[in-house]
């Protein structure tokens, strides 16, 4: 019995590990947003380097809590920085009046809902939740 538990634990680790690695994230905008966004443009908006979309309309990035699966992926694949380096980056801007980090909402569903409602919002979610209510502009 003990052996079986161990095996199933091992099995679940083996099974879940590749799944974690393969978890893809999508950057989404409102259906009314016709901007094409490069990886650099997405990074620029999320890091507060520019506060508009290429078309000139205001861009409001929305993040998720740093431990959320989508955030972990986004930090690694798009920011390409550690969570601590990001914290250091934002502390520079915060104390010099140059910007604040993107507001956080609790889940993929919350991001989806906000993006569907507001043409200025851009967010990232696990690719598996993307539906027809929003437009996917990039996948990482």
């Amino acid at each position: 019995m003990k052996k079986f538990i161990l095996h199933s634990a091992l099995l679940s680790v083996i099974l879940s590990f590749p799944l974690v690695c393969r978890a893809e994230i999508s950057v989404i905008v409102n259906l009314a947003n016709s901007d094409a966004l490069s990886e650099s443009a997405i990074k620029g908006v999320f890091l507060g380097k520019i506060k508009t979309f290429p078309s000139g309309s205001q861009a409001i990035p929305v993040a998720q809590p740093k431990d959320a699966a989508a955030s972990v992926e986004f930090t690694e694949k798009v920011y390409k920085k550690s969570a601590k380096q990001l914290k250091s980056y934002w502390s520079k801007l915060l104390f010099t009046g140059q910007g604040v980090p993107p507001k956080e909402v609790a889940s993929d569903q919350d991001v989806l809902k906000l993006v569907a409602e507001n043409p200025n919002i851009i967010g990232y979610v696990s690719s598996s939740v993307v539906d027809a209510s929003v437009k996917e502009v990039a996948k990482f």
């Binding site: 929305v62 507001k103 956080e104 909402v105 609790a106 906000l114 507001n118």
Partner: peptide
């Protein structure tokens, strides 16, 4: 399902 609508409101142009 817990939507944080208060936050959502903050995000809309104020």
């Amino acid at each position: 399902m817990k939507y944080k609508m208060a936050l959502a409101v903050c995000l809309l142009p104020m």
